[in-house]
């Protein structure tokens, strides 16, 4: 099948890329960042693309997990591989707890509520410095060790590739289970979904938990990969950036967020000198995506393709008509 071949090709490319880029540390690093963003984007897509909610507190949840992971490894001496799942599940519970009341809201109210929660989290990261070291941030975060050896260079990049590929495949699997079908029904019309026997709030909570796990795992890997985190690593602009990867690529599809992330995630690193310009660019993209191409690049490609197909039939059917006439004669 076409989709399966594409999936295998992309997975192989993701796993091979670190070894191809080994010679250029900067590009390899940007690639690693793209992989983390890919994990985040496919998680965000589950909620935004399939359940129809826009969670702007996504980065905040990633931040909770990252800070918790650092605290557990530094202060309790846990290994990264134990601290990450614990921190992730913990952060996902906190995320659900914070999000729980807002899951009754929808549309604008949900989005606003998630933005408010994100702002509260950012302020909390700044003003309760016991674990976060405030605005200064935490640096020299140790990379994870694997059998006594610290992950570094190409092997760390390859680990991130594996994590991202697993994350994308998991999302692809979830959306075609009954759970995923319920998500889609809720996205299409939550009132009708409820009448068709779907417990909308419960399914939203489940989705929210899964998505928080994606955010949290990505946050832990981000902290150990970059080695430095501060409240700014997990602020609303981060959430918006991840959202943009999903919306720009094409929400509600598996390939869309991949396209979006590969195009957009490297930009901040390639435009390092021009932070302010980067803001303007992403602002423009947000507006363009919302007003001009709500289905994203992938949706746009599909639309063009179906337009071409719709334009084609007259000639095809004319040809058929001729041949069938010929047959009748």
């Amino acid at each position: 099948m076409n989709g399966r071949h594409l999936a295998i090709a992309l997975a192989v490319a993701a796993l091979a890329a670190p070894f191809v880029l080994e010679g250029n540390r900067f590009l390899a690093f940007v690639f690693g960042i793209v992989m983390i963003n890919l994990l985040w984007a496919s998680g965000m897509n589950l909620l935004y693309g399939f359940v129809g909610l826009m969670p702007l507190m996504f980065a905040g949840i990633a931040g909770i997990a990252a800070y918790a992971m650092v605290a557990l490894t530094r202060e309790a001496g846990w290994s990264f591989w134990l601290a990450t799942p614990v921190a992730a599940v913990g952060a996902a519970f906190v995320g659900v707890l914070l999000g729980l009341p807002s899951l009754r809201l929808k549309g604008f109210y949900f989005t606003l509520c998630s933005l408010v929660i994100q702002s509260v989290l950012t302020l909390a990261f700044t003003f309760f410095p016991r674990f976060t070291n405030g605005d200064t941030g935490l640096n020299q975060i140790e990379p994870p060790a694997w059998g006594g050896v610290q992950l570094a260079g190409v092997w760390f990049d390859a680990t991130l590739s594996v994590v991202a590929v697993v994350g994308v495949l998991l999302a692809a699997w979830i959306v075609q289970t009954r759970l995923g079908q319920r998500f889609i029904a809720i996205r299409e019309d939550d009132v009708l979904a409820e009448v068709m026997g779907i417990d909308v709030v419960r399914n939203r909570i489940i989705a929210f938990f899964i998505v928080s796990l994606y955010a949290a795992v990505g946050g832990c890997f981000y902290a150990s990969y970059v080695g430095f985190i501060s409240p700014r690593s997990f602020d609303v602009l981060t959430s918006l950036g991840i959202w943009l990867c999903v919306a720009f690529g094409g929400r509600g599809t598996i390939i869309g967020p991949i396209i979006g992330t590969v195009i957009l995630a490297p930009i901040p690193y390639l435009l390092q000198e021009l932070q302010a310009f980067k803001d303007v660019l992403s602002g423009v993209l947000i507006i363009v995506v919302t007003l001009v191409m709500p289905a994203g690049i992938h949706g746009e490609i599909m639309r063009r393709r179906s337009l071409r197909r719709a334009a084609a039939p007259p000639t095809v059917s004319a040809a058929e008509a001729v041949s069938s006439n010929g047959g009748a004669r």
Partner: peptide, 26 residues
């Protein structure tokens, strides 16, 4: 659903304007 769309558009506008402010008055 224009309230969500507009909210997002103005979030984009916020980013554009703060970028411009940082590059000029800032």
């Amino acid at each position: 659903e224009r309230n969500v769309a507009y909210f997002v558009v103005t979030l984009g506008l916020t980013q554009i304007m703060s970028g411009i402010f940082a590059m000029s008055w800032g």
